[in-house]
């Protein structure tokens, strides 16, 4: 990554894209689950586990691509857990989500300590290779996962709007009783949606682990799962607007880093670290349209 000769503005946008990507991936995944009527606040925990798993797999194999695949698989598995409990066993989805967050923070720190001797952070591992784009005289490296994120968002938009899968998915999130009467398997569809959501969140975690950082750091999701939830709400459950909102939140994070770089000597860094969260709250409150969530969101469906 050659950032020496980038202008501050391009550097800022560059890091906004990098910091927005994990939020966007998680938000798109969770949006799919929420459209089907399942809320998984456990994405915060899935993200941190995905990051850890990808770093461990890369450490073991030396191949960050395998790391990414393992992150996705673990994410899907946790989505499967949440989906099963919240559909077939009528679990309280929010509490299961909280549990996954605790579990995620805990197991990654414990695992890190077992492998690397202390819970804080792992050793560095290799990261997936980027595409290098020339911008004028300078060059910017862009992760393939960034392109994947954009493709996935457009694909989600397309599937939800134009395909029978999307129509049925939306129907079980709006009115599971009706969908069931029409022979749509509410439980299975919700489970699938939650698994897909988990997989995308796992990918977001892997991005944190073996693309952005190249090492695991405890609690490295740092509330991004919740920022993704905010992005969905600000985006009014529309995939493309949600994508934009995610990158806006990523921009705030980038702004913090850039400001800290520029003025870190004059102003204590803790104040900069508050910026992305303050900005998220402000945007969230201002753009909190009374957007209607799927009608059956977070409500377990029961037959008879």
């Amino acid at each position: 990554m050659n950032k020496m000769n980038l202008s501050p503005v391009i550097a800022l946008l560059d890091s906004a894209l990098r910091l927005g990507t994990p939020i966007a991936l998680t938000a798109i995944g969770e949006l799919i689950a929420e459209k089907s009527g399942v809320v998984n606040i456990g994405i915060e925990g899935i993200m941190v586990i995905g990051a850890f798993a990808s770093v461990v797999a890369t450490y073991a194999t030396g191949d960050p691509i395998i790391g990414v695949l393992v992150g996705v698989a673990i994410g899907a598995l946790l989505g499967f857990l949440h989906g099963t409990l919240s559909t077939y066993l009528y679990a309280d989805q929010i509490i299961v989500g909280m549990g996954i967050i605790f579990f995620g923070y805990g197991i990654t720190a414990v695992g890190n300590a077992i492998i690397w001797g202390q819970p804080g952070f792992s050793v560095g591992v290799s990261t997936i290779s980027h595409l290098v784009v020339r911008v004028g005289e300078a060059s910017v490296s862009i992760s393939p996962i960034f392109f994947l994120t954009i493709v996935l968002a457009i694909l989600t938009y397309f599937v939800l709007k134009y395909t029978w899968v999307g129509l049925r998915l939306r129907s079980v999130g709006e009115d599971p009783e009706v969908a069931d009467v029409l022979g749509i398997n509410v439980f299975r569809l919700r489970l699938y949606a939650t698994v897909v959501g988990g997989a995308l969140t796992g990918l977001a975690g892997a991005y944190l682990g073996v693309d952005w950082g190249g090492r695991f750091v405890s609690y490295m999701s740092a509330g991004r799962g919740f920022i993704a939830l905010a992005a969905i709400i600000v985006g009014g459950w529309e995939p493309l607007i949600t994508l934009l909102a995610s990158y806006l939140f990523g921009f705030f994070d980038a702004l913090q880093l850039t400001l800290a770089q520029l003025y870190g000597k004059q102003v204590p860094p803790q104040l900069f670290q508050m910026i992305p969260y303050i900005a998220t709250v402000v945007v969230f409150a201002l753009f909190f349209r009374k957007a209607r969530p799927p009608a059956a969101i977070a409500r377990p469906y029961r037959r008879e």
Binding site: L85, L89, Y90, A91, G99, F102, A109
Partner: peptide, 26 residues
Amino acid sequence: GVSNEMILVIQGVILISAAVPEAYIL
């Protein structure tokens, strides 16, 4: 020598298990 975050793991599993009272009834 076990990281103290182990208790978060236990708490997480407790919460997940507490969210499915119906599973035990079934």
